[in-house]
Nucleic acid binder design. Structure first.
Lengths: 278, 278
DNA sequence: TTAACGAAGCATAAAGTATTGACGATGACT
DNA sequence: AGTCATCGTCAATACTTTATGCTTCGTTAA
């Protein structure tokens, strides 16, 4: 459901509405926009505006859609007999986790429309040089993506260190791109680097969670991830899986744009393989 | 659908309505009662009466139900959509990739039975120290897994460099574990390190593709990955996704074994977040 | 500080829905 | 055949619900 994905980006009231719809969807059937508003102690117009913001024609249209997806879900619930919540075999554990990863991936796909990915792919493709930075866990996916780009013969510089990056950026030319990996987007040093990049007429792309945060606010474009779980130790797994997939998609788009590099790509891969084999 | 049953004892006009709903259900979404009446050249009130007669509260209620049952039916159709092979929108591209990742994950799950994962989790849990090595792309997941273990307060040393690792291993004690990340398992330097580890009575776990290879042959235990695709640039993506999931699963198993560490885990995560925020 | 923006509410216009009552057709009983 | 009851339909209208324009308020950027 699209609502779940957009949830992060909403104001307090909108989130109230979203949560109600997500948790009490079944009640919605006999709620008019006014009743829903009353239940949430907000104005009826807020409900309508909420609906429209999500791209529905109006409240009835939203309601209709909720009905649909509700029906869809419960009919597929019947397919998978009983969600085996208990701590069964680890196979179930693994399957379950994959299920949640899939959900995160879907949500993430919804908030990153193809047009945007295309645009970002173009930015990267046309840049003289691509700069990438990511600290801590963010660094891992940053590194992985750097490798991919390098294999595609795109000149890419990775740093896990703000100091180094600052000096590097000072050499950026217009048209260069900086990718800021930051799950929560709160890192102020990264913001500084982003601004520095913009002063030199470079583009800044944020790679972050889909909520309001400084890094995203500053960026020219952004890759957004939606991934949630109550279990604190699971949530990062979902974030990483969803983001990885988003980056993989971007990579595939780049591959399409550079079919000739793809040939070299293969031989590069082979060369690397041999490299370590003595 | 109830309508179909009742259709027999209806008046002419009512049957017209019923037939329209049954055949053109998809149009109904954007029809008001008035529009429907116009389309059928009947009065709006007839439409409403018809709805009520069938037991709905009114026309919107009927419409809602139609939407539901429409969704239910098409969702079971949609389970097996025609696999859209052509290079459509990038959304399809992404969806398709995810599909293949899922397949790889499934295959991978099948060749790593829960008992084996349990055993490896125990090895890690009981080790004084865990050593991890992975070169190139293998290094990325090695690093990610190292971070997870460290957050669980497991003493873990990562190296992306065989020379350093050799000296490190010389300090290993019996009961320690070495994880060798090597997609193709051909790297002889890694084999040497593995043997060194065994000479010191440590355990060696290979993390590699599910085929015969030197690294796997040498190891005491192995985490195996199955991931295939004709497109040379896609295969690594599948390998990484499947392996990542396997490691995530292992991580979850470890979490279960160390429920107390899980509490610290959360605070560690927070601490790391703050760390970078100035 | 002011300008600019967005979020939320209120009031109200517009749209949509339900009810009423009138009319004609049908069919049953006298 | 005549009368009456019933049903289905419609037009008019009362009512409900939804959408929109306008105002206010709080936040952000200049």
């Amino acid at each position: 459901m699209k609502i779940r994905a957009e949830r992060d980006d909403m104001s307090a009231i909108e989130r109230r509405i979203a949560d109600f719809i997500l948790t009490e969807a079944h009640l919605l059937r006999d709620y008019s926009s006014q009743q829903l508003a009353n239940a949430l102690k907000i104005s009826q117009s807020s409900v309508v505006k909420f609906s429209q913001k999500l791209g529905f024609k109006g409240y009835p249209d939203l309601k209709y859609s909720i009905g649909e997806s509700l029906a869809r879900n419960e009919s597929s619930d019947a397919d998978l007999p009983v969600r085996p919540e208990g701590k069964d075999s680890h196979a179930v554990l693994a399957e379950n986790l994959w299920h949640f990863k899939s959900l995160a991936e879907q949500e993430t796909r919804l908030i990153n429309p193809p047009a945007k990915l295309d645009l970002i792919a173009d930015l990267i493709d046309n840049a003289n040089k691509v700069f990438i930075i990511g600290l801590g866990e963010d660094g891992i996916l940053a590194r992985a993506f750097t490798m991919r780009l390098t294999l595609l013969q795109i000149d890419t510089a990775l740093h896990c260190d703000t100091a180094q990056m600052t000096t590097r950026i000072s050499m950026a030319t217009p048209g260069d791109v900086l990718l800021l990996f930051s799950e929560y987007g709160q890192q102020l040093p990264l913001c500084r680097i982003g601004r520095q990049m913009q002063e030199q007429n470079g583009k800044v792309v944020a790679v972050t969670r889909h909520n309001a945060n400084p890094v995203r606010a500053l960026s020219d474009e952004s890759l957004l991830v939606s991934a949630h779980d109550d279990r604190i130790h699971i949530e990062p797994l979902l974030y990483q899986a969803a983001l990885r997939h988003l980056l993989d998609t971007l990579f595939m788009i780049l591959c399409e744009k550079k079919p000739d590099q793809l040939v070299d790509y293969a031989s590069n891969l082979d060369r690397i393989k041999d490299l370590h084999n003595q």
